[in-house]
Design a protein around this nucleic acid. Structure first.
Lengths: 233, 233
DNA sequence: AACGAAAGGTGAAATAATGCATTTTTTAAT
DNA sequence: ATTAAAAAATGCATTATTTCACCTTTCGTT
């Protein structure tokens, strides 16, 4: 094996990050990135990037679902955003933060590989179209969280939970039926309310026939009614 | 006068945007930017950038205070962030949004000048250090709003209002005593609660001696107690 | 100076949300 | 298979928040 330092789980040739990168930069340059890169697997629950730590690398998430988590002074957690592969994680630090503002944790088993920030920056500085592409990748992650915040900021819990169900269905699981990757506690940290309130509200939606809840299995029976709750609740 | 198309209110030579720009790009290039640029004044309340409109220019805000405003489907407003000069406004669009995601409105009289996005992008693409500097400018505006959102998402109204008072004192007015630029209604749109709740809460803080409220004049008597309310309320 | 409109303010009833105690269910470990 | 621990669920008392009806002040206009 030509790579003694680490195990390889998957082939780089089928990787989206390589495909996209090679549209902008030379193969030789990508190989420089690749030589510094390590393939990693994370089990559900594992921390990928730790809030407050110095970040020396990004992670290109090839498979899996992650959460952005902020822990405040009192130890309370807040989930800022949930994202699925493919995504470039840790980019908030590219432009102006030396330490990770948030933690990133796997909420489903994940696969990805590290990208050396210094090397990526060097290459991107020499190729502005590539730089723009990377910035788009990075800000996508950011932007998706804004609309969750808007929901949080001026809707009541009914509306917020409806919004989260719609978000998960449309952006993460891509189906009206899914197995929730979040505990009720985590759901509450995403919705900005107590876990009891999440449970009560899901039960209410269930009893009203809008959704069907069976433990972690959720089915959106009436997405349009959910939209209406989102809009007026 | 060599500039027939528009009035000039202030000298470019004392402008921070010019000073910073000229650390990275040639004077001749800056003059290209300048030739496309128009000086503008906005009265308190005026809209600078309109949500949903196509943005062909940024605004370098030289003087004044602005709010980022989001209006939802139901016509409810939400203030995402408040910023003071100097700031580069509208930059959220540099990377990936064609239409303005938010409105920007003057909440104090403002002065600034337009920056042609196409021209700035062209110059920045040829000078990556300058590009990075501009991105820093832009994401600063963004980043300041994140921590307001965190406050919104998992504090109750006491804590949120304490946070806003601290924010305004430390980041906008740079003093423990200030004349609020926001109406009570706008304060509520920033805090994510009803205007009555803002009024009740300010009155309560006043009665407890933490702050002194006299119409729009606010004095933070006991910033440390406010910090404690922020942390536990 | 008088007027109307907008913003600020108040208190109380109705509604929403939290926190707690307790039970049930699920999950993981031996 | 048994047990312990964690997560989910429930109902209720307490607290927080909104909403409403109404009043007062401020401010710009005629």
């Amino acid at each position: 094996m030509s790579l003694p330092n680490h195990q390889r789980f998957f082939e780089c040739d089928s990787c989206l990050f390589k495909t996209i990168s090679c549209q902008y930069i030379q193969k030789e340059e990508f190989e420089k990135l690749q030589s510094k890169s390590v393939q990693l697997r994370y089990k559900k629950g594992e921390v990928i990037l730790k809030q407050g730590a110095k970040s020396t690398h990004f992670l290109f998430l090839r498979k899996g679902i992650i959460k952005f988590n902020y822990e405040d002074d009192n130890g309370k957690n807040l989930i800022l955003s949930i994202n699925k592969a493919p995504a470039l994680i840790g980019g908030a630090n590219l432009v102006n933060a030396e330490f990770n503002l948030f933690s990133v944790c796997a909420i489903e088993d994940c696969e990805g590989c590290t990208i050396d920030v210094a090397m990526l920056t060097r290459i991107a500085l020499g190729n502005t179209l590539y730089l723009f592409k990377m910035l788009q990748f990075i800000t996508d992650v950011f932007r998706s969280s804004i609309f969750n915040f808007i929901s949080l900021a001026h809707k009541q819990v009914n509306g917020r939970i409806a919004d989260i169900l719609i978000f998960l269905s449309q952006n993460i699981y891509l189906s009206n039926e899914f197995v929730l990757s979040l505990s009720r506690q985590e759901f509450a940290e995403f919705a900005g309310c107590s876990k009891e309130n999440v449970i009560h509200t899901l039960r209410k939606f269930h009893n009203e026939g809008v959704i069907t809840v069976e433990g972690k299995k959720i089915l959106l029976n009436d997405p349009e009614r959910l939209q209406r709750i989102s809009k007026h609740g």
